[in-house]
Each structure stands twice: as C-alpha cells, then as structure tokens.
Design a protein around this nucleic acid. Sequence first.
DNA 1: AAAGCGGGGCA
DNA 2: TGCCCAGCTTT
Length: 365
Amino acid sequence: MKLSPLPHPDASELLGWYDRHHRELPWRVSPVMRRNGKVADPYHIWMSEVMLQQTTVQAVKAYFEKFLSLWPTVGDLASADTEDVMKAWAGLGYYARARNLKKCAEAVVALHDGAFPQTVEGLRRLPGIGDYTSAAIAAIAYDIRALVMDGNVERVVSRLFSVREALPGAKPILKAYLETLTPAERPGDFAQAMMDLGATICTPRRPACSLCPWRESCVALHQDDPENFPVKEAKKEKPVRQGAAFVAVDEGQRVLLRKRPDTGLLGAMTEVPTTGWTASRDGETGINAAPFAGDWKPTGAITHVFTHFELRLSVYRADVESAGAKPNNGWWEPVANLDGEALPTVMKKAIAAAIPHAFQRIKRK
DNA sequence: AAAGCGGGGCA
DNA sequence: TGCCCAGCTTT
C-alpha cells in the first residue's frame, strides 16, 4: 500500500499519447489535420456516434461507409424512404436507432434548416441523442468542452481513481472526476483520446498498463488491480423463450414475409411468420400456429440471444403454391432478394435453417 | 430507478 | 460461456 499521493492525471500526457497512437477511423479528423484547420463534419460525427451506441468500431465501419454512400448529406437522409433506411440498418441491431436516425435528420432539416445545432442542449433535444451523444458531437465536431462519458471513459476513470461505488450509481462520481481531467484546449481530441485509450490500452481484461500514458497516476494500478474496475451491479440471469418460425416457399422460390409492428422488439423490421415467444411451450408455440394449413415439415432449430432473453425457435418449412396460400398482411419475396430486405439476424438464421443456400454466412447458433 | 432493446467479438 | 461494446427511450 502506497501512502504518498500519486500525481493527478494531466490531459497533456494523454493528448501527447493520442498524437502518436490514435487510430485512423473513417469519420475521424486526425490531430494533424485538425491543427491544419480541418473541421469534422457534424453529419459524419452524428452518424458514427449513433451507430457506435453499444456497438463496436469494427461492426460500424462498413455501415458508416454504406450510409454515407447512400445518403451523403443530412438532407438526403431526411428525404429518404424510411423502409430503405431500415433495410440498410439490418444486422446492426437496436433498430430504434435507425427509426430515430431518420426522425433526427428530418428534425435537423425542418427545425434547423439542415444544420446541426452547435450546443449540447440543442443537440440533446433531437431524437436518439442522449447525454453521451450530445456531448460527443459537441466536443468532436465543434471542439466544445463537454463531458464525454461512455463505457470506455467509465472504465478509465474508475481505474484512475479506484472508484469503489458500483455502476450505474457511480456515474455522478465518475463525471465529477472527469470534470477534473477534461482540458479547455483540444477537448474534442481529448474525448477521442479517452475512448482510444479505453479501447486499446485500458481494456476490460488484461489492460496494457505498461504502455499507458497515465500509468504513474493510476490508483488502481498502484494500490489494487485495474481488472477489478469498474465495479458493476450484479445482473439478472437471462430467461429462455421458445416458439416456432414458419418458412413458406412457393413454386417461384419466393418466401412469405411480413412486417413487424413499428415499436418494440425488432420494431418495423421484416420477419417470417412466427408463433408468440413464450416462457414455456404451450398450444400456441407449436406447428398449429402456422400462417395457413399446409404440409409443414421440421427443418431444425435455431438459438438467438437478445439483450434480455434467449430465444429458441423450431423452424418449419412448407412448399406451397402461393395462389393457394393466404398471406394475410404478408408478401412473397424471391429468395434471391432476401439480402436486400430489412431482416434482423434472428430471421436470417431461421430462413437459413429452412433454406440452406439462402444466406452463406449465417450460423444457426 | 428500472426495464426494454441486437449483434458480434473476445478471453 | 460470459462479458463487453463511443447508450437511448419508455415506464
């Protein structure tokens, strides 16, 4: 146990590290370019930040490029067809983000003449933009000294100061510490540096403390173990739900699809007909809940893990003549077109179980 | 304050 | 297999 106080972490140490070791990202303006006067495009920063909510950088890159290619400006996105936005977002998850992305673009055009607000408060009022995202856009796009605290920053700060309180209750304490770290100069680079540090050095497990620019200041490193932080409340165990999915294929190699309700789980996304997803099997989660009578044959089972439950679906297939089947509020889509549909991953798994050649890269488990 | 809301990568 | 990820909205 070290009794003498450690030096307080200095932002200049982190910024110097960031100048040398920052990652190149499609939406990022490098510190060198920033010094040369280049400013970040608020539309790009907003797009990347929404995609990055609870989502890894690696997963976001391809989607970011696709969205910028399809809709180069916020005006283009505002006037886009919402269904096309959902199709482009399919596979990235948390689909309320896509619905709010569209609403936000419309609001920026309608209320702000196509220019994003340049204050934290103005940004915070827009759909899909909360405390983190409003601060991040303000800092990164406008170099405003906002307090940007995401999961990475929570981890870094909790270790630096060895915060014993458990998340999420510890957030106000962590934010107070972050206030003492955030500089008046280069706050945008500082915010990105904190996240790069958390992503590459101060990782959840086996952090590379010997490479950390703040290793001399980290209380957890000197007095405890960084891997013990942040402390988190125990989480509840995931319940299992079960049901059945029905893949109908007609004589033209078309699949019966339908649209889910606009709100709730997988809102506004496309699906194959399924039973309800219930805690235990009963009469309504079996084959007799098929969309129409037919020669339904079991083709396997798939498992998909959502945030708050695990889903096990028995998959049935029937080969039918579409003229004789009754797709109430559904439509027949050629198998060859399925890649362009707004199908969430769980639905691609179900279809792949019934039609093995439909999706190449989809696993059943 | 707590719950609902995806999907993938990693040790 | 469990944990985590540039969180937000609704109740």
